[in-house]
Amino acid sequence: MTFRDRTTNVDALRSWRGDVEADYIYTTGVAGERFFTELRDTGRILAAHCEACERTYLPPRMYCEKCLGPLSDWRPVRGPATVEAVTIASVDAHGNRPPEPEVWAVLRWRGIHGGLVHRLAVPPKQAKPGLKVHPVLRPAGSRVGNITDILYFAP
């Protein structure tokens, strides 16, 4: 069934413009507060461990997603991170081309469930899975408690 009246003159069809305005402040949460203040104040990356499920979560959370038990055993991640997957971004979030392509990676630590997504400070050709990298942070005084306190990961 279709409409019996149908506009064939496209100039008679109209559109209506509008912005959906919104502005947000997200708290980092109970676990996030501890994770980000530790990163800001000591530069350490903390994970949360579930004894029952023998799992250590990064980013850390206040519950175990497997048994839904509370997590209170927090421990810093140790050793370098391993690059698991990479992408070379030639366009930014607005569709613009940055002067240099950006390298982004999924990073994992041994014995850790989860990991982080972050920038990789290596030339695109050297960005390969298996690369061992360390976080490079903003100087201690200028960190704010945010994921961008980590500037990038480098070999």
């Binding site: 980092t28 949460g29 996030g32 048994c67 839904l68």
Partner: peptide, 27 residues
Amino acid sequence: RRLQETPKEMCWEAARMALDQAGLEIG
């Protein structure tokens, strides 16, 4: 009006409490 918990964390707190009250586990 304002809780520190993220949406996930609030969900977990309520879910955990309901399971505890029923004497159940997520399994």
